[in-house]
Design a protein around this nucleic acid. Sequence first.
DNA 1: CGAGCCCTTGATGCATTTCAACGAATGTGG
DNA 2: CCACATTCGTTGAAATGCATCAAGGGCTCG
Lengths: 233, 233
Amino acid sequence: MKLDTSKVSIKTSLASCFGSNFQDLNGSQDFLDELATMAQEITVEANSYLFKESDASNFVYIPISGVIMLERSTARGSRHVFAFLFTGNLIGLSEFSFYTFSAKSVSNSTIVKINKDLIKNVFERHPQIAKRFHEYTNMVLNYILDQLFIMGQKTAHQRLALFLLDMEKRIGHGTKKFFLPMSRQDIADYLGMSLETTSRGFTSLKSKGLISIESNYSITLLDPVALAEFGDN
Amino acid sequence: MKLDTSKVSIKTSLASCFGSNFQDLNGSQDFLDELATMAQEITVEANSYLFKESDASNFVYIPISGVIMLERSTARGSRHVFAFLFTGNLIGLSEFSFYTFSAKSVSNSTIVKINKDLIKNVFERHPQIAKRFHEYTNMVLNYILDQLFIMGQKTAHQRLALFLLDMEKRIGHGTKKFFLPMSRQDIADYLGMSLETTSRGFTSLKSKGLISIESNYSITLLDPVALAEFGDN
DNA sequence: CGAGCCCTTGATGCATTTCAACGAATGTGG
DNA sequence: CCACATTCGTTGAAATGCATCAAGGGCTCG
């Protein structure tokens, strides 16, 4: 029940949710103080669940390290992955009282867990912070719209190319070589295709000279511009 | 520049955005008064644009009658339809200063056009109304997540079945026979498939005895339960 | 070294797109 | 009101993309 809000990792994660000039916002200190006493830092093992579909949505989570995957499973055993979330992303922003998807940790993760009532309280006292939060929601909405567009219009291999570009931006922050934390199956379930098609996609992008595969989880984008062009066509 | 906020059609549209007990909310009268003097009711002809992608997003729109389609077009001429919006839906809730899609009227429409500054102002004065608005955003987000799931996991004919069920709920409000306002091409671009596949989908659902097609735009769901089952599998 | 897991590759079949032609509905000008 | 043009929807045939089934390869861990 004690969170060290002076840690750089926590500060940067919060800044990524609430804007880079978060510290200057009216009420930010009050918010940080509340977090320091009421929020907690938890660790989650790889492959275990943060929460499951239809659990009561009492908490909001912000990953500090590691990767979280949001998923939903169908009546007939198949699975859909909605999103991969990294450091500084925000999980559980829904205003519904139950989660509509599960959150599973892909790797060992460190996560800040915040009581939703605390958040709501802060929002009521500090409209500026609430506003930032809603801007974040809006950004997410736009991100999902883009994803919807990709799902509707692109071939499997194009979706994979665009996925890798997105991961480069979010994991590698522009470094062409980066570590892909999720399995081929996870990617397949995210992009709405079979595991085999994902694998063939990797092979195809490799043989086109667009990427190189050092190991299953280490990828280098050899030609991001051409990769983007391939994805956009 | 004068809006008759006492009209039933306008009241119901607002209620649908801001909740059924909107009138009881703190500040709702103030909001209505502002709308009465500052908002306007406009009419838009079929096939004309309310706004286009990358226009400055200065207004928020609420359809009173008619159908609006949100679309984006690609570099190479293809088009994606994000959503069909009906009476009481809300358009342009983005906090970005430019729209990221175009809004096109499918039929002749009547629309309430509200200046975004007015909205922002009201939200600052009345947090309760702002909150309703954000709940609405959240609902939209969940709706799009469902759509993403459908796009990733379902076959073309299943997507069509689920689309028809959604339209029944939103247009017919549960009346099995209803008027489909959009063309086959619009549906195809919404569901991410070709016009021909859409057409074959209609034929297939008809021959399965799930729907009947009185005319191109008049559809009856003969067996909604079976249709839902077909879509869910 | 062997078991198990994840990934890759090959072969086949089905779903969907594409190309092409036809039919139905709608609108226009004579 | 009819002939014609035009738009929109349906249907067929061929080609393609992707899923599925099945087998093999490579890595990791006991």
